[in-house]
């Protein structure tokens, strides 16, 4: 038997894809993904995607920048290169705040971006879903739902029939 990635259904309207996602999830499928031209909160809800690791990663990055930036300034001005300017205290921490803040933002921003890209498994120039003819329209005006063959409930014929019953324009098998 030929190996397939999953079964893909194409929908014309945003309402249909929301409804279809809910029905597919309720039917017990879990290894699935929905392809839409723009982010749809309704779909995230139906896919039960609530929490992501992006925010904790950003938090860690931000705190690293915060602590690192402050320590860098403290160490250089107090320990490594102390300058006595009119007898003022070496540990003049209020003047370190602006750079501490900037370091926090910089590292947090990089963490958010790199974290998101890494969690999404990008860059990934090739993916089986690109094999579906007409998949370009997922960038334009069509909505796609793919049930992947890794799902325990997956059965190529049965799943395809089920997707067809949800009002899909067409249902196709995705080559692995």
């Amino acid at each position: 038997m030929k190996q397939i990635y999953g079964v893909m259904a194409e929908f014309e309207h945003s309402e249909q894809i929301i409804e279809a996602t809910r029905r597919v999830y309720e039917a017990g499928y879990r290894s699935m993904d929905v392809y839409t031209p723009f982010p749809m909160h309704e779909i995230f809800h139906e896919l039960h995607e609530h929490r992501t690791w992006v925010s904790p990663i950003t938090m860690v990055g931000g705190l690293t920048g915060l602590v690192g930036g402050f320590m860098l300034q403290t160490w250089t001005t107090v320990i490594d290169y102390p300058l006595n300017i009119g007898g003022r205290p070496l540990f003049s921490w209020p003047s370190f705040i602006p750079i501490t803040f900037e370091c926090m933002v910089l590292l947090a921003a990089f963490s958010a971006l790199i974290g998101m890209i890494a969690l999404n498994g990008l860059p990934q120039p090739y993916h089986p879903v690109f094999n579906v003819p007409g998949f370009e329209r997922s960038s334009q005006d069509r909505f796609f739902l793919c049930v992947e063959s890794t799902d325990p409930k997956f059965d190529a014929a049965e799943t395809a029939r089920f997707l067809g019953s949800l009002g899909a324009q067409r249902v196709v098998e995705v080559e692995a």
Binding site: D33, P39, M40, M116, N120, Y126, F130, S138
Partner: peptide, 19 residues
């Protein structure tokens, strides 16, 4: 980066964008 409009990606993407 090989973006494929996946909703699971969009979800993390929106969070990163918001952050």
């Amino acid at each position: 980066l090989g973006w494929r409009n996946s909703s699971r990606h969009w979800h993390r993407y929106e969070m990163a964008y918001l952050l």
